[in-house]
C-alpha cells in the first residue's frame, strides 16, 4: 500500500496554477464554440431524439479546430479530454435552447464547459499520485 504523500513522488510542472487557468479558458472556449455551432446548424423544429445526437456531432466537429489551436499553444491530454467531453455535451444541449440569442447560447455553452472542467479537475485531484502496487 502506498500513500499519496510519498516523499519520493515526482514533482509536477513549475506553474500548475497557470496551466489550470489555461484549461479553464479552454473549457469555456470549447463550450461556447460547440454550443453556438450546434444551435446554428441544427434546424429549429428537429425532434429532440434527432437534434441531440446531431448537435453532439456538430459540437465535436466545431470544437476540433479550437482544439488544434489551443493544443498548439499549451496543449496536453487535459485539453484533448476537455474538447471531446465538452464538444459532445454542449453540442447535445444547444439545439434544445428555444428562443436564445447568440450571446445567451455561448454563455450556456461556456457554462457546460465550466462544469465539465470542474468535474474533471475534482476527479484529477482525487486520482493524482501513487495507485498502489509499489514494491515494499
Amino acid at each position: 500500500m502506498t500513500t499519496r504523500t510519498d516523499p519520493a513522488a515526482p514533482a509536477g510542472p513549475a506553474h500548475p496554477a497557470a496551466l489550470r487557468l489555461f484549461d479553464y479558458a479552454c473549457a469555456l472556449s470549447f463550450g461556447a464554440t460547440a454550443a453556438l455551432a450546434a444551435w446554428w446548424l441544427v434546424p429549429d423544429g428537429t425532434p429532440g431524439a434527432l437534434a441531440m445526437p446531431l448537435g453532439m456531432v456538430v459540437g465535436v466537429v466545431a470544437a476540433t479546430p479550437v482544439l488544434f489551436l489551443l493544443n498548439w499553444i499549451l496543449g496536453g491530454f487535459e485539453v484533448l479530454m476537455l474538447a471531446m467531453q465538452i464538444g459532445m455535451l454542449a453540442g447535445m444541449a444547444a439545439p434544445m435552447i428555444r428562443g436564445g440569442t447568440p450571446g445567451s447560447v455561448a454563455l450556456a455553452g461556456a457554462g457546460v464547459g465550466l462544469v465539465v472542467q470542474l468535474l474533471l479537475h475534482a476527479l484529477d485531484r482525487s486520482l493524482h499520485g501513487d495507485v498502489g502496487g509499489r514494491a515494499p
Partner: peptide, 29 residues
C-alpha cells in the same frame, strides 16, 4: 487513446512495482 497498457505490461511478463497517476488515471508513470 484507449490502450490498457498496465494489463499489457503484466501480460508480457512484467510485474508493476509502481504506478503513478499524472493526469486522471489516463497519463501514468
Amino acid at each position: 487513446i484507449n490502450r490498457r497498457t498496465a494489463d499489457n505490461v503484466r501480460t508480457a511478463g512484467f510485474r508493476i512495482v509502481r504506478e503513478f497517476n499524472v493526469y486522471l488515471d489516463m497519463v501514468k508513470l
